[in-house]
């Protein structure tokens, strides 16, 4: 068991290496020269060559890769060419904004889907089951960005209950969940973010639980005199970890929708960097994000 876990962990090393090589290569292959972007067109070639040497871009690609890899491994993600700030802190700033809504939507989706899944599984074929299934299918199939826009139209524009954009006065640093003035900005993002994983996890819980409830030993448990409640809760509790892949899904989705959450904050890294490839590090970062969600860069 432990040996198996260790083996799987060691397996991630070559995978991670492969990922870095592919990412690095993709950025190199992408059209556009960061230094060209940085300077005016009339800049003399000697100056461009100096800048190139300064950023290490005159080295062979392989050397560049290993230099970069070594720095990443020692915790240095480099400096953004566009605004001269360390990439790590830029990413962290964006990440803080993400975490404000992602964390709470993950928790919400997890518990809500658990409850809905249990309700659906114990009332299979009933009206409640169909209703829950409808919610789940809606959550899975409706794109977050569309839902987000519709939510804005309905709740911000039409009935004006919630703010359309922004993240309150304090930003993510002073965000206070318990203050409605702050929290109202997070309500719609959280709902939009929570719905897709909620749909997936509800379906997963429902099918897993109904499979268990149809097994023979459930009849034994009933015949032993156990209560319905404990019969249903026990398999749920034991198979909870089985839902963890869904958590990962949720994190992936959250990176997509945070654009919406962030859009209102002008001049911040992800919004600006998505328009032009600046430094190797930041462009890689936004490219990776735009793979997660094509709508991010549009």
């Amino acid at each position: 068991m432990w040996l198996y876990a260790l083996r799987r962990l060691l397996m991630t090393i070559p995978i991670l290496l492969g990922v870095t090589i592919i990412c690095f290569a993709l950025v190199k292959l992408a059209p556009g020269d960061p230094v060209q972007n940085l300077v005016r067109p009339e800049t003399p070639p000697e100056d461009i060559a100096k800048l190139r040497a300064y950023y290490g871009l005159d080295q062979p690609v392989v050397i560049q890769y290993f230099v970069w890899l070594w720095r990443v491994l020692s915790g240095d993600l480099g400096t953004s060419i566009a605004n001269n700030a360390p990439v790590a802190s830029e990413v962290l700033r964006a990440f803080q904004n993400t975490i404000v809504i992602a964390l709470i939507s993950v928790v919400l989706a997890f518990f809500a889907s658990m409850g809905l899944g249990i309700i659906a599984a114990t009332r299979q074929g009933g009206l409640v089951d169909r209703f829950v299934t409808a919610i789940a299918v809606f959550g899975i199939s409706v794109p977050t960005f569309w839902l987000a826009v519709v939510l804005v139209i309905v709740f911000a524009v039409n009935i004006n209950w919630l703010p359309a954009t922004g993240m309150g006065s304090g930003g993510s640093h002073d965000f206070n969940y318990f203050d409605w003035e702050d929290f109202k900005f997070a309500v719609m993002p959280i709902i939009a973010l929570a719905l897709p994983p909620l749909g997936i996890m509800t379906r997963t819980t429902r099918s897993a639980l109904s499979e268990i409830l149809n097994q023979d030993f459930i009849l034994t448990l009933r015949a032993k005199g156990l209560s319905e409640f404990s019969i249903i809760i026990t398999p749920c509790a034991t198979s909870c970890p089985g839902l963890s892949p869904c958590w990962v899904c949720n994190w992936a989705t959250s990176s997509a929708a945070r654009c919406w959450w962030k859009r209102s904050l002008p001049g911040q890294a992800p919004a600006s960097c998505s328009t032009r490839p600046s430094s190797p590090a930041t462009s890689r970062c936004c490219r990776a994000r735009s793979w997660c969600s094509p709508r991010c860069s549009s």
Binding site: D216, F217, T220, L221, A223, K224, L226
Partner: peptide, 21 residues
């Protein structure tokens, strides 16, 4: 549910599947 298992109890046909794995 009090009677089940205490006053009346039951043995099932399939010992392979009747016990919680």
């Amino acid at each position: 549910s009090e009677l089940r298992g205490s006053t009346i109890s039951m043995i099932f046909q399939e010992p392979m599947t009747a016990l919680d794995p």
